[in-house]
Amino acid sequence: MNLTLRVWKQDGPDSAGRLVDYPVTDIDPNASFLEMMDILNEQIMKEGNDPIEFESDCREGICGTCGLVINGQAHGPKRAVATCQLYMRDFHDGQVITVEPWRADSFPVIKDLVVDRAALDRIISAGGYISVRTGPKPDANATPIAKDKADHAFDMAACIGCGACVAACPNASASLFTSAKVSHMALLPQGQVERSRRVKRMVDQMDHEGFGNCSNIGECSAACPKKIPLESIARMKREYLRAVVIPNDAS
């Protein structure tokens, strides 16, 4: 396949960025999108020029490192996959493909397609945990958890923290990310003790980081590689309201 890549280049957080066209030739349709980017970088470096900076790690859709806006869509045209799980057979010969970084004020660009997502870690740090110390614990089977509840909690816990939800949202809201963790823990008996404190602190941190509000558009869920449903945001809002109305943690 031969393609034209129109890629966002930006030297640093305070520099102006621009789109630059690169021809890419001789790509195997079974190559992954990131392998195509590797090949392009090899071609660029063979000429002695600076490559396009982008990030990836596991390249199997679980670590959440990669994340590109491809032709205007976070993680590209295919549903329920991360950028690293796109294959060139999903594109066509001769196509012009625009590649941009996640765009949100809370995700400053580090270089080219690499952004700083540390704000997401700070949201988790504000309460995305169950406060138990390492040490002796009750037997793991001491508290039975209904299978459908455990499965549901898993669906929420499957979030990979890539930030596509923020990139896809017109408000750059991190509601889907935050709500996934709030839901995961609110659904489990272990999460009940800190239920109110958790949601309040996490939502406050999310606002503090400058992420926008949710206005029920649903682009986040459509872009999510792990199919976190919009329902989790509804649960977060309900949990937040509950926490405000019933301030102590007795559930």
């Binding site: 945990y129 169950i130 138990v132 390492t134 040490g135 002796p136 614990k137 009750p138 037997d139 793991a140 039975p144 958890i145 209904a146 299978k147 455990a150 499965d151 909690a153 898993f154 816990a157 995961h184 823990m185 489990l188 272990q190 999460g191």
Partner: peptide, 15 residues
């Protein structure tokens, strides 16, 4: 102990 610890943290193992 690892399984007990993980369950206490809310790790959603299969049930």
């Amino acid at each position: 102990s690892i399984i007990d610890q993980a369950v206490a943290q809310g790790v959603p193992f299969a049930r």
